[in-house]
Design a protein around this nucleic acid. Structure first.
Length: 491
RNA sequence: GGGCGCGUAGCUCAGGGGUAGAGCAACUGCCUUUUAAGCAGUGGGUCGGAGGUUCGAGCCCUCCCGCGCUCACCA
């Protein structure tokens, strides 16, 4: 017999099953209950029909105990030759860990007190040809499971099979997203979908992915942000809107960055950034209560309270506090360059004022923002889509929320003055000419939309992946994205 | 791209110049209330790859590949 590897052994078992008339690869298994219901509504002698994957086998000659798991939980099943018949028991002898089976039988309690289904009818629904990397477990103890991070990311299905923690994270992610939708829907926001393929990439400072449309013979860009389209909807009279979907940025991959990531963007007409700040505090603390059952989280060993109100610090004050330096825009770019040198900051490419401010904030200020904090009032040069502050035209009504040292969003009172917007794009164009590839591009169609009149509005973007990281305590974005971007696998 | 670390059986991991190991999984036998089932036995490895040093290399050296962390890049 050819049994020199695990795969061949299973192929042989499959053949034996098929030759003995067992039906494997069934179409469906109607009428099954969830394992959780069998446990929760347990009654001695109750008939139950269940289906799931076998995760553990304990053979005893003419009987077999097995643990079977479905989406809702795990239950022990008991297969006796006497009960299911000699012929079917021959099939039982060919089962392996990983097979998916359907069973019908009656519930009973074993001598050891475990709720168990004694099987009367047994069907192999799917024969698994590969061995799942399941560990051994007893109650809450777990001896080993799939640990290799590359395999966990590349073959996420194995990770989900093997690691309870991984299942927990992705269920949490789903609950967070559902809860965000419910929160916004309850406040009168409507969900919209705008293009993922843009003729001009806009709404953020980032490098785009390029693709080509054959029939139109034109390049298109995967969107880096939906912002400019959502604002067009404000012009059209939609007043409270949100979009919850993917953005794509052709930039580095890190524990905090994936090339495609999920963003919530929302706009509320007749609101400004102050109103949006309250919305953010309320939304995230509500999420925590509803999803985690608490208003605090633990991230990187810090206990973080999400209860409003969050601290609000003007950006330049935060810089002054951390570095003693004054990066006010009126002091000019030369002053900023001198500060960058004093602080020994390494800046790639052109040392523009926005880049320096960005770098100082990112490396010296943000890591200290552990408790929820809004940095507010960003210099206009960093914020080409935000409305200027009435008392200081060099600053904008913009804020970013930080939690656990992670930037989780970006928001502002939206710039609705088309003439000002045109000037901002032109200023960005100058940076672009100086070699800043991420500077934003002129979008004439967007300007035209603003010229028809966009109501005053507050807008917000929230990085959903980072929010899930915070809520799940994961320090890598790859642990909260089902299929994170990896190098293609070699043959 | 730089720095640090890792790569050994299907899975989790030991072994750090002298005959490739353990637990689980698998296979054979026994076993009809076990549960990390048990007992007896068996098979399974180009030690990531290629060179080199050595009488002898998972082990030391060089290069390469893959992965992680980190710095850079990047809201």
């Amino acid at each position: 017999m050819e049994t020199d590897n695990l795969y061949q052994q299973r192929i042989e078992k499959l053949k034996r099953l098929q030759e003995s008339g067992a039906r494997v690869y069934e179409r469906s298994f109607p009428g099954r209950s969830l394992v959780r219901d069998a446990i929760d509504q347990f009654a001695e002698g109750r008939e139950m029909c269940l289906a799931g994957r076998l995760i553990s086998l304990r053979g005893h000659g003419k009987s077999v105990f097995a643990d079977m798991r479905d989406v809702s939980g795990k239950i022990q099943i008991y297969l006796r030759a006497d009960t299911i018949g000699k012929d079917v028991f021959e099939h039982v002898k060919q089962i392996d860990i990983g097979d998916i089976v359907g069973v019908r039988g009656t519930l009973f309690t074993t001598r050891m007190g475990e709720k168990t289904l004694e099987v009367k009818e047994f069907t192999i629904l799917v024969k698994a040809l590969r061995e799942p990397p399941l560990g051994k477990s007893k109650e809450d103890q777990h001896w080993y499971s799939l640990a290799d991070v590359e395999t966990r990311y590349r073959q996420r299905y194995l990770d989900l099979m093997s690691n309870e923690e991984s299942r927990r994270v992705f269920l949490l992610r789903s609950r967070i997203i559902r809860c965000i939708r419910a929160f916004l829907d309850a406040r009168g926001f409507i969900e919209v979908e705008t293009p993922m393929m843009h003729p001009i990439p806009g709404g953020a400072t980032a490098r785009p992915f390029v693709t080509h449309h054959r029939a139109l013979d034109t390049d298109l860009y995967l969107r880096i942000a939906p912002e400019l389209y959502l604002k067009r909807l404000l012009v059209g009279g939609m007043e409270k809107i949100y979009e919850l979907n993917r953005n794509f940025r052709n930039e580095g991959i890190s524990t905090r960055h994936n090339p495609e990531f999920t963003m919530l963007e929302l706009y509320e007409a007749f609101a400004d950034y102050r109103g949006i700040m309250q919305l953010v505090e309320e939304m995230i603390s509500t999420l925590a209560r509803e999803v985690l059952g608490a208003e605090s989280i633990v991230f990187k060993g810090h206990t973080i309270s999400l209860a409003p109100p969050w601290e609000r610090i003007p950006l330049l004050d935060a810089v002054r506090k951390q570095t003693g330096e004054d990066l006010s825009p009126e002091r000019g770019e030369k002053s900023a360059v001198a500060i960058a040198e004093r602080l020994k900051l390494q800046i790639e490419g052109p040392k523009t004022y926005p880049k320096i401010v960005d770098e100082v904030v990112k490396s010296l200020v943000v890591p200290r923002l552990v408790q929820p904090t809004f940095l507010i009032d960003y210099p206009v040069a960093l914020s080409p889509l935000a409305k200027k502050k009435p008392d200081n035209p060099l600053l904008t009504e913009r804020f970013q929320p930080f939690i656990g040292g992670l930037e989780v969003g970006n928001a502002f009172s939206e710039l609705c003055d088309p003439l000002d917007q045109r000037e901002r794009f032109e200023a960005q164009h100058v940076d672009r000419e100086r070699g800043d590839e991420e500077a934003q591009r002129m979008d004439e169609d967007f300007i035209r939309a603003l010229e028809y009149g966009m109501p005053p509005a507050g807008g917000l973007g929230i990085g959903i992946d980072r929010l899930v990281m915070l809520f799940s305590g994961k320090e890598s974005i790859r642990d909260v994205i089902l299929f994170p971007q990896l190098k293609p696998e070699e043959k």
